[in-house]
Design a protein around this nucleic acid. Structure first.
Length: 896
RNA sequence: GGGGACUUAGCUCAGUUGGUUAGAGCGCUACCUUGACAUGGUAGAGGUCGGAGGUUCGAAUCCUCUAGUUCCCACCA
């Protein structure tokens, strides 16, 4: 039976070929196994406008590893895919497109604009799901959802109505974050503050009916003074106690201002006098409410000054600011301007400076829901990994503020509210309303606004499963198991999902939240398109393959830690896929066995193993154990590096090298046919298990090789490695003794190779080796042929210490053995002497420290017995070494 | 203002309950173009774990302070 692999691994061909098969064969749909708990992940739905970036690649690789791992454990496994309609982002895209044609959305009107947007979605909206397939993501695409599809829209309405009926949704006039470019309200989370250099303007407000008397107020936004309706001081501030009875004249605008006392005012800051603009500042808004002040809105939706601004009407807010400052200066009312650093909100979509804006919006009352969501985390029913995020989450939850959910855009779920034009009744309904519930009038108008995009995302873990219907999927797959996401959407998404799950289903939506790090570039700045510092995952896939990308990402990103990425980081994955490919190729090339029954090793086969076979099986099983553990605790980097070290540095570097002669022609005389067959079987067993272990991280290549391997076997291994059984650890095969023996063998080989390197003995030249053994029954005796092979020796002799002194040259000292080579070699005595001197110094120092430690009674009394004994053992060994080195030093000195 | 995270070889990072003469990958040096792989092999050089103090028989690992880098959160005009 011959199986062949191409000379080089052609990732592109393999990837497209297998993904098609996987998807077509519905391997990614959950199985019907009722005995095992289902494993469920919902994808953090990427924006429909999105294109795959490294953050996605990391996020989805982790999800895929978990999904494939559980699928191989034969659990019913569902990775629910889908996309987010991304209200503002998508609308921006379509509006930009229209702008190129010289049109605005208003030219089209609402209906036509939405049609246009759906059209855009149909044409471009599947980009990212295609890209996720390139990555190998094993989502169940038959269940793919979109936040605006019919079912999800229904759950949005259901939740809105329920919350409204419960009194948790209310409408009101408040100061919200307004983006003058997107023309919409934003939630607090959507308006992140950035420190910016601004100015603090000190302005004189004249006191009415006084000559030249004035108070000084300070502001960073002078243009808002157009909307001032009062000035506030701290009630305990004696400097201004007289002021309370007086009135002020607001400059530039002909308006009288009263003076109010409010605790909010900090006596220490500035002059201790605050201008109050209730319609343009959240704090002033509160003061305004407390003191029943007038709310004057001075801006239009685009941030320009409106008619209330008198002479400044029509000016953009920043132009108005300049002009106002200039005018004040001319009037002699500008006292001074100081540089001032302060935090300014910016639109998270377009980065425009947010305007605190007074308007009527819909809000969700969050406190009652937060309480439940806090509880489930505190009780450990939802667990953050790493745990430090728990604190971040709880802190936000405990200080939660109401959620502004109305957006003044068109793309999204329209608010299910109909106002009666006749009786002004507010109709809130799951179904479209055509008749007023109060007065039966048909003269209704629906609320113009749509809901925040996150108002549909927060339902994602159950809306995708069919909720509010009691669907079989919902029963079977809710609550989901793991959530995998980045830290930047803990508040936006994770926290709200927990609230929604508890509120609407009475059960937390997932058990663990795995927060992975952020991908940054080599300088540590976040990768973003606008900075132009991105590495496109698709380019990487193109160059090195998806498996290499995935593996590299796992090697690079420590648990939850940010990763600093540069292109060369992907070499590790590329090299590893190459190594696996070539190792398998080599082994397949030299196979002689006929078809095997299967790859499992029978009892009798296990009894006939060579030491090397025993050892590799021990290493394999200890790797299975480690990988299992790593995955269980979400330490993907550990899993990846465990696999890497096993396959490369145990299997390839040592095992294959050791069995090579048996497999190639020169070995034919050396072993019996049965022995060769057994070795081949062990080797195939190891490869087959390794492939299964690697499959969650590197799905494509493992499938390709595994399918070739299948042909060698009579037993039906199944259709795909992705459905095959996840390897279990066979603890009986973790044979410590064989591990120790092979470690000794490796040390011996290293010493001898080192000798070659130091003395420039060519690898081809055979050497003669002698081993002086501590005891006659040393295990080393059984290793002669391996030593011979690894050191390329003509022969290996075992000698006793006293004899044949002149013939052998000492090259190394190990645990139970002293190594010699034939003294006829051309040996660099000076070099050797240097090495021996250094070794002796090290050993001396080490012995000194050990003796010190051991002579300390406190150590003897306090340290655990094993630790103490270990130290004693170390000392004995070191003393032996010391003796040998001393002798050798003497010998070398005589020779010089 | 509050809360995290990070600081270990030239670079990027491991080091899970304190006990290793401190590890890996890349890079570097020397040798190897022997038919699996130069995306390779062998050998080697290179850190005392940001700094200071403390706890302990024993600390990279725990505590305190301190410096630097960085990320969140926060309504001080």
């Amino acid at each position: 039976m011959k199986i062949e692999l191409d000379k080089i691994y052609k990732s592109k061909d393999v990837e497209t070929r297998w993904y098609k098969v996987w998807e077509k064969s519905r391997y990614f749909c959950p199985n019907e196994n009722l005995d095992l708990d289902p494993f469920v992940i919902v994808i953090p739905p990427p924006n429909v406008t999105g294109i795959l970036h490294m953050g996605h690649a990391l996020n989805n690789t982790i999800q895929d590893i978990l999904t494939r791992w559980h699928r191989m454990k034969q659990q019913p496994t569902l990775w629910m895919p889908g996309m987010d309609h991304a209200g503002i982002a998508t609308q921006n895209v379509v509006e930009r497109k229209l702008a190129k044609e010289g049109k605005t959305r208003h030219d089209l009107g609402r209906e036509a604009f939405l049609e246009e947007t759906w059209k855009w979605k149909e044409e471009h909206g599947s980009t990212i799901s295609k890209q996720l397939r390139h990555l190998g993501s094993s989502c169940d695409w038959t269940r793919e959802r979109f936040t605006m599809d019919e079912g999800l829209s229904r759950s949005v309405r259901e939740t809105f109505v329920r919350l409204y009926e419960k009194g948790l949704i209310y409408q009101g006039h408040y100061i919200i974050n307004w983006c003058p470019r997107c023309h919409t309200a934003l939630s607090d989370e959507e308006a992140p503050h950035k420190d910016s250099e601004g100015s603090l303007y000190h302005i004189k407000y004249p006191i009415k009916d006084s000559k030249d008397k004035f108070v000084v107020v300070a502001t960073t936004r002078p243009e808002t003074m157009l909307g001032d309706t009062a000035v506030a001081i701290n009630p305990t501030d004696e400097r201004y106690s007289d002021l309370v009875k007086q009135k002020l004249n607001l400059p530039l605008v002909d308006r009288e201002l009263s003076v109010v006392q409010d605790d909010f005012v900090d006596k220490e800051f500035g002059t201790g006098v605050v201008k109050v603009t209730p319609a343009h500042d959240p704090n002033d808004f509160e003061i305004g409410k407390r003191h029943d002040l007038e709310f004057i809105n001075v801006m239009n939706e685009d941030g320009s000054i409106n008619e209330a601004g008198g002479a400044y009407q029509g000016l953009d807010r920043f132009k108005a600011r300049k002009k106002i400052v200039k005018d004040l200066e001319e009037l002699g009312l500008l006292l001074k301007v100081e540089p001032h650093q302060h935090a300014v909100g910016h639109c998270y979509r377009c980065d425009t400076v947010i305007e605190p804006y007074f308007s009527k919006q819909w809000f969700v009352k969050m406190k009652p829901m937060a309480e439940k969501a806090i509880k489930v985390v505190q009780e450990g029913r939802v667990q953050f990994i790493p745990d430090r995020w728990t604190k971040v989450y709880l802190n936000w939850m405990e200080n939660i503020r109401d959620w502004c959910i109305s957006r003044q855009i068109w793309w999204g779920h329209r608010i299910p509210v109909w106002y009666c034009n006749d009786c002004e009744h507010i109709n809130v309904s799951r179904e479209d309303v055509t008749e007023c519930q109060e007065c039966k009038s048909k003269n209704l108008r629906q609320d113009e606004d749509v809901l925040d995009t996150w108002f549909s995302s927060w339902l994602w873990p159950f809306s995708t499963l069919g909720w509010p219907d009691e669907t079989p999927d919902l029963k079977r797959f809710y609550p989901t198991t793991d959530l995998v996401t980045g830290s930047e959407i803990i508040f936006f998404w994770v926290a709200r999902m927990i609230m929604a799950g508890c509120e609407f289903l009475g059960k937390e939506p997932f058990k663990t939240v795995n927060i992975h790090g952020t991908i940054r570039d080599g300088d540590g700045t976040k990768m973003s398109k606008s900075l132009g510092n991105t590495i496109d995952p698709l380019d990487v896939i193109d160059e090195v393959g998806a498996d290499a990308l995935r593996f590299s990402l796992m090697m690079i990103t420590g648990s939850g830690q940010d990763a600093y990425l540069s292109k060369d980081k992907f070499e590790i994955g590329r090299n590893f896929t190459n190594k696996i490919w070539n190792a398998c190729r080599f082994l397949f090339m030299n196979l002689e066995s006929e078809k095997l029954e299967d790859f499992e090793l029978s009892e009798s086969e296990l009894k006939n193993l060579t030491l090397i076979d025993e050892w590799i099986l021990a290493e394999l099983n200890s790797t299975i154990k480690k990988v299992n553990f790593a995955l269980e605790v979400y330490r993907f980097n550990d899993a990846a590096s465990d696999l890497y070290h096993f396959f490369w540095h145990a299997f390839c570097d040592w095992y294959i090298e050791l069995v090579k002669p048996k497999l190639t022609s020169e070995g034919e005389d050396l072993i019996s046919k049965g022995e060769r067959q057994l070795t081949e079987k062990v080797m195939l067993h190891v490869i087959e298990k390794s492939l299964r272990l690697i499959h969650p991280i590197m799905p494509f290549q493992s499938e390709e090789i595994w399918q070739k391997l299948k042909a060698l076997c009579n037993k039906d291994l199944g259709e795909s490695i992705s459905l095959s059984q996840w390897p279990e650890t066979n603890h009986d095969l973790i044979n410590e003794e064989s591990i120790q023996k092979v470690e000794l063998l490796q040390e011996i080989a290293t010493v001898l190779r080192n000798f070659r390197a130091e003395n420039n003995v060519a690898p081809r030249d055979k050497i003669h080796i002698a081993c002086e053994l501590e005891s006659a029954d040393s295990v080393v005796k059984g290793l002669a042929s391996e030593i011979k092979l690894l050191a390329n020796a003509e022969e290996v002799q075992f000698i006793s210490s006293q004899k044949e002194k002149g013939k052998w040259f000492k090259v190394g000292v190990l645990k139970e053995i002293i190594l010699y080579v034939d003294a006829s070699q051309d040996i660099d005595i000076a070099k050797r002497k240097k090495v021996v001197d250094e070794s002796l110094n090290n050993v001396d120092a080490y012995i000194h420290s050990l003796e010190k430690k051991l002579s300390n009674d406190k150590f003897k009394n306090n340290a655990p017995k094993e630790v103490y004994e270990k130290e004693v053992e170390k000392l004995q060994e070191s003393l032996k070494k010391q003796k040998v080195f001393q002798e050798e030093k003497k010998t070398l000195e005589e020779l010089v």
